[in-house]
Protein backbone atom coordinates (compact mmCIF):
# COMPACT_ATOMS: atom_id res chain seq x y z
CA UNK A 1 0.00 0.00 0.00
CA UNK A 2 2.86 2.36 0.82
CA UNK A 3 3.96 2.02 -2.80
CA UNK A 4 0.71 3.50 -4.09
CA UNK A 5 1.04 6.53 -1.82
CA UNK A 6 4.69 7.01 -2.75
CA UNK A 7 3.78 6.93 -6.44
CA UNK A 8 0.83 9.24 -5.85
CA UNK A 9 3.05 11.64 -3.95
CA UNK A 10 5.82 11.83 -6.52
CA UNK A 11 3.26 12.11 -9.35
CA UNK A 12 1.49 14.95 -7.58
CA UNK A 13 4.78 16.77 -7.05
CA UNK A 14 5.65 16.21 -10.69
CA UNK A 15 2.23 17.47 -11.84
CA UNK A 16 2.33 20.54 -9.61
CA UNK A 17 5.74 21.42 -11.04
CA UNK A 18 4.43 21.39 -14.59
CA UNK A 19 4.27 24.77 -16.25
CA UNK A 20 1.01 23.70 -17.84
CA UNK A 21 -0.78 23.72 -14.46
CA UNK A 22 0.31 27.26 -13.79
CA UNK A 23 -0.54 28.28 -17.33
CA UNK A 24 -4.01 26.86 -16.81
CA UNK A 25 -4.37 28.69 -13.51
CA UNK A 26 -3.34 31.96 -15.13
CA UNK A 27 -5.77 31.31 -17.97
CA UNK A 28 -8.41 30.57 -15.35
CA UNK A 29 -7.64 33.82 -13.55
CA UNK A 30 -7.91 35.83 -16.78
CA UNK A 31 -11.20 34.17 -17.68
CA UNK A 32 -12.44 34.88 -14.20
CA UNK A 33 -11.59 38.55 -14.64
CA UNK A 34 -13.53 38.64 -17.91
CA UNK A 35 -16.35 36.81 -16.18
CA UNK A 36 -16.39 39.31 -13.31
CA UNK A 37 -16.55 42.24 -15.73
CA UNK A 38 -19.37 40.58 -17.68
CA UNK A 39 -21.33 39.92 -14.51
CA UNK A 40 -20.82 43.48 -13.37
CA UNK A 41 -21.96 44.91 -16.71
CA UNK A 42 -25.01 42.70 -16.58
CA UNK A 43 -25.91 43.97 -13.14
CA UNK A 44 -25.47 47.61 -14.24
CA UNK A 45 -27.58 46.94 -17.28
CA UNK A 46 -30.38 45.38 -15.25
CA UNK A 47 -30.49 48.32 -12.84
CA UNK A 48 -31.83 50.62 -15.51
CA UNK A 49 -34.64 48.24 -16.42
CA UNK A 50 -37.86 47.26 -14.86
CA UNK A 51 -37.83 43.48 -14.82
CA UNK A 52 -39.12 40.81 -12.57
CA UNK A 53 -36.54 39.63 -10.04
CA UNK A 54 -37.54 36.17 -11.12
CA UNK A 55 -36.31 36.56 -14.72
CA UNK A 56 -33.32 38.52 -13.55
CA UNK A 57 -32.23 35.80 -11.21
CA UNK A 58 -32.58 33.26 -14.01
CA UNK A 59 -30.33 35.19 -16.33
CA UNK A 60 -27.71 35.72 -13.65
CA UNK A 61 -27.71 32.09 -12.62
CA UNK A 62 -27.36 31.16 -16.29
CA UNK A 63 -24.31 33.38 -16.53
CA UNK A 64 -22.80 31.68 -13.53
CA UNK A 65 -23.24 28.38 -15.33
CA UNK A 66 -21.28 29.79 -18.28
CA UNK A 67 -18.45 30.54 -15.89
CA UNK A 68 -18.59 27.09 -14.36
CA UNK A 69 -18.71 25.45 -17.79
CA UNK A 70 -15.51 27.30 -18.69
CA UNK A 71 -13.88 25.88 -15.57
CA UNK A 72 -15.07 22.44 -16.56
CA UNK A 73 -13.57 22.64 -20.06
CA UNK A 74 -10.32 24.01 -18.69
CA UNK A 75 -10.12 21.20 -16.14
CA UNK A 76 -10.67 18.48 -18.74
CA UNK A 77 -8.05 19.89 -21.10
CA UNK A 78 -5.63 20.32 -18.19
CA UNK A 79 -6.22 16.70 -17.16
CA UNK A 80 -5.28 15.44 -20.59
CA UNK A 81 -2.30 17.72 -21.14
CA UNK A 82 -0.65 17.11 -17.75
CA UNK A 83 -1.08 13.35 -17.71
CA UNK A 84 -0.60 12.45 -21.36
CA UNK A 85 3.14 11.99 -20.98
CA UNK A 86 3.17 10.06 -17.76
CA UNK A 87 2.78 6.48 -19.04
CA UNK A 88 3.89 6.66 -22.66
CA UNK A 89 6.69 9.10 -21.87
CA UNK A 90 8.12 7.09 -18.99
CA UNK A 91 8.00 3.89 -21.00
CA UNK A 92 9.64 5.64 -23.92
CA UNK A 93 12.43 7.21 -21.87
CA UNK A 94 13.04 4.14 -19.72
CA UNK A 95 12.20 6.01 -16.51
CA UNK A 96 9.73 3.24 -15.76
CA UNK A 97 12.47 0.59 -15.63
CA UNK A 98 13.82 1.58 -12.24
CA UNK A 99 10.28 1.85 -10.83
CA UNK A 100 8.66 -1.26 -12.28
CA UNK A 101 11.43 -3.41 -10.79
CA UNK A 102 10.63 -2.26 -7.27
CA UNK A 103 8.48 -4.42 -5.00
CA UNK A 104 5.22 -2.91 -6.10
CA UNK A 105 2.83 -4.39 -8.62
CA UNK A 106 2.31 -2.57 -11.87
CA UNK A 107 -1.33 -1.85 -11.03
CA UNK A 108 -0.08 -0.07 -7.94
CA UNK A 109 2.14 2.15 -10.07
CA UNK A 110 -0.80 3.00 -12.31
CA UNK A 111 -3.26 3.58 -9.49
CA UNK A 112 -0.69 5.66 -7.59
CA UNK A 113 -0.11 7.87 -10.60
CA UNK A 114 -3.85 8.10 -11.15
CA UNK A 115 -4.46 9.29 -7.61
CA UNK A 116 -1.63 11.80 -7.85
CA UNK A 117 -3.14 13.43 -10.92
CA UNK A 118 -6.66 13.23 -9.57
CA UNK A 119 -5.70 15.14 -6.42
CA UNK A 120 -4.08 17.84 -8.55
CA UNK A 121 -7.14 18.11 -10.81
CA UNK A 122 -9.55 18.11 -7.88
CA UNK A 123 -7.56 20.96 -6.41
CA UNK A 124 -7.74 22.87 -9.67
CA UNK A 125 -11.49 22.35 -10.00
CA UNK A 126 -12.06 23.32 -6.36
CA UNK A 127 -10.12 26.56 -6.74
CA UNK A 128 -11.63 27.63 -10.05
CA UNK A 129 -15.17 26.65 -9.01
CA UNK A 130 -14.91 28.44 -5.69
CA UNK A 131 -13.55 31.56 -7.37
CA UNK A 132 -16.28 31.57 -10.02
CA UNK A 133 -19.05 31.04 -7.52
CA UNK A 134 -17.61 33.71 -5.28
CA UNK A 135 -17.50 36.26 -8.14
CA UNK A 136 -21.04 35.37 -9.19
CA UNK A 137 -22.31 35.65 -5.65
CA UNK A 138 -20.47 38.87 -4.91
CA UNK A 139 -21.77 40.63 -8.02
CA UNK A 140 -25.31 39.30 -8.25
CA UNK A 141 -26.05 37.28 -5.15
CA UNK A 142 -26.79 34.02 -6.99
CA UNK A 143 -25.68 30.72 -5.51
CA UNK A 144 -25.65 27.28 -7.08
CA UNK A 145 -28.09 24.76 -5.71
CA UNK A 146 -25.80 21.81 -5.00
CA UNK A 147 -22.23 23.00 -5.56
CA UNK A 148 -20.62 19.92 -3.99
CA UNK A 149 -22.57 17.50 -6.14
CA UNK A 150 -21.50 19.55 -9.13
CA UNK A 151 -17.90 19.54 -8.00
CA UNK A 152 -17.92 15.78 -7.53
CA UNK A 153 -19.41 15.19 -10.98
CA UNK A 154 -16.85 17.44 -12.66
CA UNK A 155 -13.98 15.68 -10.90
CA UNK A 156 -15.57 12.42 -12.02
CA UNK A 157 -15.63 13.72 -15.60
CA UNK A 158 -11.91 14.51 -15.30
CA UNK A 159 -11.28 11.05 -13.85
CA UNK A 160 -12.78 9.53 -16.99
CA UNK A 161 -10.55 11.69 -19.20
CA UNK A 162 -7.61 10.63 -17.03
CA UNK A 163 -8.44 6.93 -17.29
CA UNK A 164 -8.69 7.24 -21.08
CA UNK A 165 -5.37 9.04 -21.23
CA UNK A 166 -3.79 6.27 -19.16
CA UNK A 167 -5.36 3.62 -21.37
CA UNK A 168 -3.96 5.20 -24.52
CA UNK A 169 -0.63 5.76 -22.81
CA UNK A 170 -0.18 2.05 -22.16
CA UNK A 171 -0.62 1.38 -25.87
CA UNK A 172 0.65 4.31 -27.89
CA UNK A 173 3.28 7.03 -27.97
CA UNK A 174 2.67 10.31 -26.17
CA UNK A 175 1.66 12.10 -29.33
CA UNK A 176 -0.77 9.45 -30.51
CA UNK A 177 -2.33 9.17 -27.05
CA UNK A 178 -2.77 12.91 -26.92
CA UNK A 179 -4.53 13.04 -30.28
CA UNK A 180 -6.79 10.15 -29.33
CA UNK A 181 -7.67 11.57 -25.91
CA UNK A 182 -8.48 15.02 -27.26
CA UNK A 183 -10.34 13.47 -30.20
CA UNK A 184 -12.57 11.47 -27.89
CA UNK A 185 -13.17 14.59 -25.87
CA UNK A 186 -14.38 16.18 -29.10
CA UNK A 187 -16.79 13.30 -29.63
CA UNK A 188 -18.12 13.78 -26.10
CA UNK A 189 -18.54 17.49 -26.69
CA UNK A 190 -20.45 16.87 -29.90
CA UNK A 191 -22.55 14.18 -28.24
CA UNK A 192 -23.56 16.64 -25.57
CA UNK A 193 -24.73 19.19 -28.08
CA UNK A 194 -26.50 16.66 -30.27
CA UNK A 195 -28.48 15.47 -27.29
CA UNK A 196 -29.40 19.08 -26.61
CA UNK A 197 -30.59 19.54 -30.16
CA UNK A 198 -32.45 16.31 -29.99
CA UNK A 199 -34.59 17.82 -27.26
CA UNK A 200 -36.14 20.04 -29.97
CA UNK A 201 -35.50 18.21 -33.16
CA UNK A 202 -37.85 15.54 -34.28
CA UNK A 203 -35.05 13.63 -35.99
CA UNK A 204 -34.62 10.20 -34.52
CA UNK A 205 -31.21 10.02 -36.20
CA UNK A 206 -29.85 12.96 -34.31
CA UNK A 207 -31.07 11.50 -31.06
CA UNK A 208 -29.39 8.22 -31.90
CA UNK A 209 -26.20 9.95 -32.91
CA UNK A 210 -26.13 12.02 -29.73
CA UNK A 211 -26.75 9.02 -27.54
CA UNK A 212 -24.14 7.01 -29.44
CA UNK A 213 -21.52 9.74 -28.93
CA UNK A 214 -22.33 9.91 -25.26
CA UNK A 215 -21.96 6.16 -25.02
CA UNK A 216 -18.57 6.28 -26.73
CA UNK A 217 -17.43 8.97 -24.32
CA UNK A 218 -19.80 9.88 -21.51
CA UNK A 219 -17.76 12.74 -20.04
CA UNK A 220 -19.90 15.57 -21.28
CA UNK A 221 -23.11 14.05 -19.99
CA UNK A 222 -21.58 14.31 -16.52
CA UNK A 223 -21.18 18.03 -17.02
CA UNK A 224 -24.83 18.31 -17.98
CA UNK A 225 -25.80 16.35 -14.92
CA UNK A 226 -23.58 18.62 -12.84
CA UNK A 227 -25.20 21.67 -14.40
CA UNK A 228 -28.62 20.29 -13.55
CA UNK A 229 -27.56 19.68 -9.95
CA UNK A 230 -26.10 23.14 -9.56
CA UNK A 231 -28.62 25.36 -11.24
CA UNK A 232 -31.42 26.73 -9.18
CA UNK A 233 -34.82 25.22 -9.76
CA UNK A 234 -35.79 28.33 -11.63
CA UNK A 235 -32.86 28.69 -13.94
CA UNK A 236 -33.28 25.95 -16.45
CA UNK A 237 -34.45 28.46 -18.91
CA UNK A 238 -31.46 29.20 -21.16
CA UNK A 239 -32.86 26.42 -23.13
CA UNK A 240 -30.48 26.01 -26.05
CA UNK A 241 -27.12 25.65 -24.40
CA UNK A 242 -25.05 23.10 -22.56
CA UNK A 243 -26.65 24.38 -19.36
CA UNK A 244 -30.21 23.66 -20.28
CA UNK A 245 -32.03 20.77 -18.76
CA UNK A 246 -33.80 19.91 -21.96
CA UNK A 247 -32.37 16.42 -21.71
CA UNK A 248 -30.99 15.84 -18.28
CA UNK A 249 -28.77 12.79 -18.08
CA UNK A 250 -30.51 10.38 -15.77
CA UNK A 251 -29.06 8.46 -12.87
CA UNK A 252 -28.67 5.68 -15.38
CA UNK A 253 -26.35 7.86 -17.49
CA UNK A 254 -24.22 8.53 -14.42
CA UNK A 255 -24.20 4.82 -13.67
CA UNK A 256 -23.12 4.13 -17.23
CA UNK A 257 -20.29 6.64 -16.84
CA UNK A 258 -19.17 4.87 -13.66
CA UNK A 259 -19.13 1.50 -15.42
CA UNK A 260 -17.35 3.06 -18.39
CA UNK A 261 -14.72 4.51 -16.08
CA UNK A 262 -14.18 1.17 -14.33
CA UNK A 263 -13.83 -0.68 -17.63
CA UNK A 264 -11.40 1.86 -19.12
CA UNK A 265 -9.19 1.92 -16.03
CA UNK A 266 -9.46 -1.86 -15.80
CA UNK A 267 -8.25 -2.36 -19.38
CA UNK A 268 -5.46 0.17 -18.84
CA UNK A 269 -4.28 -1.78 -15.77
CA UNK A 270 -4.67 -5.12 -17.52
CA UNK A 271 -2.62 -4.01 -20.48
CA UNK A 272 0.02 -2.25 -18.39
CA UNK A 273 0.37 -5.38 -16.26
CA UNK A 274 1.21 -7.57 -19.21
CA UNK A 275 3.02 -5.39 -21.69
CA UNK A 276 6.81 -5.31 -22.10
CA UNK A 277 8.53 -2.29 -20.67
Amino acid sequence: MTGIWLMAGVTLREAVRRKILWTALIAGALLLAVFAVAMHLQVVEFQGRAMSPFVRYQVEAGMMMIGLYTCDLLAVVLTILTSIDTIAGEIGSGTIHAIATKPLARWQILVGKFLGFLVMIAGFVAVTFAATIWVAHATTGVLPEHPFRGFALIVFECAIALALTFLFGTWFSTLTSGVLALGLQGVAFMGGWLEQVSGFSQSVHIVTLGVASSLVMPGESLWRRAAYEMQTQLAGSLSFSPFANVSIPSGLAVGYAAAYFAVVLGIAIWHFERRDL
Binding site: V10, E14, R17, S93, G94, T95, A98
Partner: peptide, 12 residues
Protein backbone atom coordinates in the same frame (compact mmCIF):
# COMPACT_ATOMS: atom_id res chain seq x y z
CA UNK B 1 18.52 -4.05 -7.25
CA UNK B 2 18.69 -2.81 -10.84
CA UNK B 3 20.64 -0.21 -12.73
CA UNK B 4 18.97 0.16 -16.15
CA UNK B 5 20.96 0.62 -19.34
CA UNK B 6 20.06 4.26 -19.60
CA UNK B 7 19.21 5.45 -16.13
CA UNK B 8 16.61 8.19 -16.13
CA UNK B 9 14.50 9.71 -13.48
CA UNK B 10 12.47 12.78 -12.64
CA UNK B 11 15.21 15.33 -13.00
CA UNK B 12 13.73 17.82 -10.58
Amino acid sequence: GFLPEDFRFYDW
